[in-house]
């Protein structure tokens, strides 16, 4: 019988993975604006702003990311930036998601059947 120790690490949803990767890419500068911009710049997807915040909050509630508050800035109307970074659990899940995708993609070619042999 399987126990919890041997159970596979849960994976992340697509949007969750995008946000986690964007946080990793932004490093110390990961907050709402830069995360949204990073995803847009790299994938070309214009995500709904609220979707990013909701995802960030959900990851935060599940202990996959942590947040810290910066210094209040005048151009933000006196509001502070909320910076995000990844918790080890979040990294494990991102890793598990990548492994799951890689494993599933292994040996699959999406080249059309009538394509030249070298492309199959």
């Amino acid at each position: 019988m399987k126990t919890d120790d041997t159970a596979p690490t849960p994976t992340l949803g697509e949007l969750e993975l995008l946000v986690v990767l964007a946080i990793l890419r932004c490093g110390d500068e990961a907050y709402g604006v830069t995360i949204t911009e990073e995803i847009r710049r790299r994938t070309g997807r214009r995500l709904a702003r609220a979707a990013v915040y909701v995802t960030l909050r959900r990851l935060h509630e599940r202990g996959l990311v942590r947040s810290t508050t910066g210094t209040p800035l005048p151009e933000r109307g006196g509001k502070a930036r909320r910076y995000y970074s990844i918790e080890p659990e979040g990294l494990d899940r991102a890793q598990a998601t990548q492994t799951a995708f890689t494993t599933m993609w292994d040996g699959i070619s999406l080249a059309p059947a009538d394509a030249p042999e070298e492309h199959r």
Partner: peptide, 27 residues
């Protein structure tokens, strides 16, 4: 416009979004 956020969103989240929007707006 920014006030609308404080009506629909919980306080903490409204502050975060409002700050980010203000920053982008000034840019």
């Amino acid at each position: 416009l920014l006030r609308v956020l404080s009506i629909v969103a919980p306080e903490e989240l409204a502050d975060e979004i409002e700050g980010d929007l203000r920053e982008q707006l000034s840019q």
